[in-house]
Design a protein around this nucleic acid. Structure first.
Lengths: 142, 142
DNA sequence: TTGACAAATGCAAGTAACTTGCATATACTT
DNA sequence: AAGTATATGCAAGTTACTTGCATTTGTCAA
């Protein structure tokens, strides 16, 4: 009996016309398991613990492929490296604690009005924005 | 008779307790001259044209020093490298054309309300945010 | 079930942005 | 004008990421 989660992951790969490999299933499992955007070394470490040793190069390639297929989304948090999360998550932004580096999702975005205003002012078209908040989380603020 | 601009730059360096060198004056001139955030290679190229040949390493160091002293501010536009602009510019965000890469300033920010909301929800403290808009500028949109 | 072939992976090497160590050169102080 | 701290250049190192190429492995058709 296959686990439900694994089956979902297989479907996800089939839908994207990608072959089902241990490395890809492992990356998908990691993304489900994680509660914040993850970077390549976090994924590699996780896979090693799961006894699915995968070369870092392969993880980079898997994430690029997933992103091309719209499965994952790169997140740039000004760390000098990219993180990734599922692309189909509800639209949200991130709040990064500058002390403990915890990343929490921020729901609700009030930026659309500003986008319309930019379009009026500039005569162009705004297709997306990136917005991140930095500060101290509850545990670090005191 | 020294030019006014150059004299301003000298003052800026003196105020920051930094020595006045051709390389630093050149970087400051470039920042004044540019109408969008600039990266290290743009600065290096500009200095070469001005017959102030400066090693890239030195430009990196100058920008780090300026940023430490609060003269410049690093701008991350998800390009895999940093740009810099004067830190004392009025608070603003950027609108990047994904086709021609032109960067224009966006005045007016409606994000403060969202920051207060995050603080209430999370119990933490938001100290800054980064917000960039991507799309097509007027000339590229048609 | 098998065998062929495209696709995925590993390894080594390459790249780009940025940093660091150290020797030399230069700006500022007196 | 000289002494000294600071700035710079050069070479090498680092980190995140990419690429080329040989090998392995999924998948699909027979």
């Amino acid at each position: 009996m296959k686990s439900t989660i694994k089956h979902d992951c297989r479907d996800e790969l089939h839908n994207a016309k990608l072959r089902v490999t241990p490395a890809r299933l492992g990356v998908l499992a990691m993304l489900e398991h994680a509660d914040m955007p993850v970077d390549v070394s976090m994924i590699t470490d996780y896979l090693k613990k799961q006894k699915i040793p995968v070369n870092e190069v392969t993880v980079f390639r898997i994430l690029n492929t997933f992103t091309d297929k719209g499965i994952t989304k790169p997140i740039q948090l000004n760390e000098g490296k990219l993180r990734y999360e599922y692309a189909n998550k509800a639209k949200h932004h991130h709040f990064i604690c500058e002390k403990c580096k915890t990343i929490t999702d921020v729901e609700g975005c009030t930026v659309e009005a500003l986008e319309r205003q930019i379009e009026k002012t500039s005569g162009g078209k705004v297709t997306r924005h990136s917005l991140e908040f930095f500060g101290l989380c509850r545990r670090c603020v005191s």
